[in-house]
Design a protein around this nucleic acid. Structure first.
Length: 263
DNA sequence: ACTTTGCAGAATTAGTCGCC
DNA sequence: GGCGACTAATTCTGCAAAGT
């Protein structure tokens, strides 16, 4: 039922609002999924982790590792395995340290793109990944669907949502642009985009929590067509509350008058 | 008494949609 | 475009009521 999905999502949002220090937002960038000829899984170029409470962002990226190892950006390709491994070493150490946090992500759910893909990449490079338990993962894209219904934004949802809400995301690249940036070895650009995305996710989450996110859904799509849904809608809508208070007063007065006449 | 019709619900198939 | 998860659409199934 839509109203239970909606309620659960709202419950989660207020939980995040109450304990922001328990939540991290993660996103990452990688090589294109389909430009790969030899069948290897897409290389990971950067990962960003944003602490929701403080907005402090930790990031792991191929070019930063290269810089530390005194490797030129133009030579990254030659040392890719080694650099990617080092970056993921850092990331998984970080993940282990933050094992009691909840990880908010955007559609990072399968072997193609997601935690599983990062873990897989790390194993390929000879690492032993730390598995973040599934119950610690929160898919924001899905939670927004639960909260507002499937039609809350056009496709692709993130981009449309930014347009709808007048969020100007500097340095934001969409998927294919990121893929192109990888091909052109523009790792810094990729990293900036990834950093921007976690920032944007936080912004959107914040608006969802405050109920100020602009969405396309009608109230029936948000609350669901059911008695419970309608009741919830009324409960959450200030003017219905005021109207209801007013009507109650009038009814009360009329009944009072009526009883007064009888007695 | 047997066949046809209608229809709801189940089951299967087809289509769509993210993430880069 | 790959992969997996959903959803929408279509077909199938089973059963009761109506028709012959």
């Amino acid at each position: 039922m839509q109203h239970t999905r909606h309620n659960n999502a709202r419950k989660l949002f207020s939980e995040i609002d109450l304990n922001p220090q328990n939540y991290l937002i993660i996103h990452y960038s990688c090589e294109s999924f389909y430009d790969i000829k030899d069948g290897h899984t897409p290389r990971i170029t950067s990962i960003a982790v944003y602490a929701y409470a403080t907005a402090q962002t930790d990031s792991f990226s191929i070019h930063k590792v290269a810089e530390k190892s005194h490797i030129q950006i133009s030579d990254i390709e030659l040392h890719y395995d080694e650099l990617e491994k080092k970056m993921l070493d850092e990331f998984f150490a970080y993940a282990k340290e933050h094992s009691n946090f909840f990880w908010i992500h955007w559609n990072m759910r399968d072997i193609n793109y997601g935690f599983k893909a990062i873990e897989h990449r790390y194993s390929v490079l000879g690492g032993i990944p730390y598995n973040i338990p599934d119950e610690k993962k929160i898919d924001l894209a899905r939670q927004l669907i639960n909260c507002y219904g499937v039609g809350y934004a056009g496709h692709p949802r993130m981009e449309k949502l930014l347009e709808q809400n007048d969020i100007k995301a500097k340095d934001y690249l969409n998927g294919s642009q990121e893929a192109a940036a990888f091909a052109n070895k523009e790792y810094v650009k990729l990293h900036m985009s990834t950093l921007r995305k976690v920032d944007v996710f936080s912004n959107i989450l914040n608006r969802a929590i405050n109920n100020t996110l602009k969405v396309n859904s009608k109230w029936t799509e948000i609350y669901g067509i059911s008695i419970q849904g309608i009741l919830n809608y009324c409960k959450d809508t200030w003017w219905i509350q005021i109207l209801w208070t007013f009507i109650s007063m009038v009814i009360g007065a009329v009944i009072g008058e009526f009883i007064g006449k009888i007695i």
